[in-house]
């Protein structure tokens, strides 16, 4: 099985600060990978480099046998990598449905600006797809709510639903459950994971809550000080006392849970 995403010798420095050091990871298709690590360990930097928001200082990123290192994010998106954000990036002045329509309309008007000029904004196909996406992510009852007034959990789901609209092959979720209550975290992840099921999407998600990682990830990458210090099954990684110590500090559960809202 060849990897859908292969990262070799990835490095990122900001001045004298090293945010990523020699990261080597190969992700096979359809795997769900949990990324853990303390704040500042380099998780988001890793996601930002893969999605083209940051240009790596060194190393290569290969997606579906194509070198995408340092490409602009919109190009990477078109190749099939989508992402959600720790702070949901949604269109505040539009309703939930209009947000979703924007995402599906862009997906329908593939081919850049000329296609976007010739494709109607309210094409029946993309409207149907938008309705379906709201159902799938269980946010249809917020359909006409202005995005600016949404509760955090719905914002997160909308952000992810919009990212998925373009039918990506690889999806990166940056802290999908941060900023929402513990009870809602599992609910949200259930919705997301069941929506993504059967669509052939490989998922990488950044997460602080070890219970979530244990439940949903096939594999865990543990970051510390910009480097991957553990790479294996959740059971293996989470049982390692060294990981527990470095990632979450000695008093594991309370600390991670209160650090949810970043």
């Amino acid at each position: 099985m060849s990897a859908i995403l292969a990262v070799r010798g990835l490095q990122k420095t900001f001045g004298s600060v090293v945010a990523a050091r020699d990261i080597n990871v190969a992700v096979p298709p359809l795997q769900t990978v949990g990324i853990i690590g303390a704040n500042g360990a380099g998780k988001t930097t890793f996601v930002n480099m893969i999605t083209g928001h940051l240009r790596p200082s060194k190393g290569t990123i290969v997606f579906c046998d194509r070198d995408i290192t340092g490409r602009p994010s919109r190009e990477i998106t078109r190749l099939g990598i989508a992402r959600s954000f720790q702070i949901p990036q949604i269109f505040q002045s539009l309703s939930v449905f209009e947000n979703m329509c924007a995402a599906t309309a862009i997906a329908h008007a593939a081919g850049g600006l000329p296609a976007q000029l010739l494709t109607p904004w309210r094409a029946p196909g993309s409207l149907r797809q938008a309705e379906a996406a709201l159902e799938l992510f269980r946010i249809a009852r917020y359909r006409d709510t202005p995005a600016a007034t949404l509760p955090q959990g719905v914002r997160k789901l909308l952000d992810i639903a919009m990212a998925v609209a373009g039918s990506p092959r690889l999806l990166l979720l940056d802290e999908p459950t941060s900023g929402i209550t513990i009870e809602e975290k599992f609910e949200l992840m259930d919705v997301v994971m069941s929506a993504l099921k059967d669509r052939g999407i490989t998922v990488l998600f950044v997460e602080h809550d070890m219970d979530i990682v244990a439940r949903y990830a096939d594999r865990v990458l543990a970051f510390y000080d910009g480097a991957v210090i553990a790479d294996g099954s959740p059971a293996q990684a989470l049982a390692d006392p060294r990981i527990q110590e470095l990632i979450s500090g000695p008093q594991l559960k309370p600390a991670t849970r209160s650090a949810g809202h970043a």
Binding site: I90, F91, A102, I106, T119
Partner: peptide, 28 residues
């Protein structure tokens, strides 16, 4: 205004990052 390109002006004002990550060049 009824085309996708025309309608995207308001999203561009709200969040350029989201648009870029939907594959749109906001500058263009």
């Amino acid at each position: 205004f009824r085309s996708v390109a025309g309608a995207l002006a308001i999203p561009a004002r709200d969040s350029e990052i989201r648009l870029e990550f939907l594959g749109v060049s906001v500058n263009r």
